[in-house]
């Protein structure tokens, strides 16, 4: 299912941040948007998720199957948003619990356990989020996102709170587990975008515009030492730095 966002506009305190913005998300591809803070990346993403209530953001969303997008997007934020009063397993099951008055059936439980095993946390299913490290918590958030089985996954700087090694590990895991989904990722980190994405867009300027997509060669996750990735990273950094001047 291709998704197209048309004529998106965002204003902040009566100033136009962007307007007339079009964004295409081709089916089963990983699209990343890079940009500096305050350029409206997160608002754009929350518009697609239907939760952009603190920003004055508008736009029309079209899906290639003609149905509305609402209810078909999974959201993963920088903050893992694990509910501290639920166990790790119940956090993964959150969607089922919210729809079934806090209960879930054996089949759903089985699937949640399987997803926890996939992110390497099978043995911590009964722990509470407070007992987990930052990396582990974000893994649980990833499992919760996967549990939803939504066609579009929107990620808002999902790994930016992690240390370098954990970040690389989680990027590999996400690339592997989200391979067949349509993904939109917002990030600050050019290397992250280049490792994972099929298409990298840069949002910058005033009012902000989306650049033409950069398509890194090869399959994700790409190696950090891949020369193509490194040279593209250099270009992207120059582009981002140029936008600030």
């Amino acid at each position: 299912m291709d998704i197209r966002l048309e004529n998106a506009s965002l204003s902040w305190q009566h100033h136009c941040v962007f307007s007339g913005l079009n964004l295409d998300l081709p089916a089963r591809q990983w699209t990343s948007i890079l940009g500096q803070s305050g350029v409206g990346k997160s608002s754009l993403l929350q518009l697609l998720c239907g939760i952009a209530d603190d920003a004055d953001v508008h736009g029309r969303v079209y899906c290639s199957d003609g149905k509305p997008l609402a209810g078909r997007v999974a959201w993963m934020a920088q903050d893992d948003l694990l509910l501290p009063w639920l166990s790790v397993l119940d956090n993964v099951l959150l969607e089922a619990r919210l729809h079934q008055h806090g209960r879930c059936n054996a089949e759903q439980r089985e699937r949640a356990r399987y997803l926890l095993a996939q992110v390497g946390l099978a043995q911590l299913a009964d722990a509470r989020p407070a007992q987990l490290s930052g990396g582990q918590r974000q893994r649980v958030a990833l499992a919760r996102t996967l549990f939803q089985e939504r066609p579009l996954v929107c990620m808002d700087e999902p790994f930016s709170a992690l240390d370098a090694i954990n970040r690389l590990k989680l990027q590999d895991l996400a690339a592997q587990l989200l391979a067949d989904r349509t993904v939109l990722m917002i990030t600050h980190d050019p290397l992250e975008a280049l490792r994972l994405s099929d298409r990298v867009l840069v949002l910058q300027g005033r009012p902000a515009r989306l650049s033409a997509p950069i398509t890194p060669p090869g399959d994700a996750p790409r190696q950090v030492s891949d020369p193509a990735v490194l040279s593209l990273q250099g270009q992207l950094l120059e582009l981002l730095a140029g936008g600030r001047a």
């Binding site: 959201w75 934020a77 509910l83 619990r97 919210l98 939803q148």
Partner: peptide, 27 residues
């Protein structure tokens, strides 16, 4: 209630009742 929890519940399609009983109340 942290707004992040409520936003997450909304993307999960939770009704207002479910949000109150399963997110706001325990929080």
């Amino acid at each position: 209630t942290p707004t992040g929890y409520l936003k997450l519940a909304r993307t999960l399609g939770a009704s207002r009742r479910a949000q109150l009983l399963q997110i706001r109340l325990p929080a």
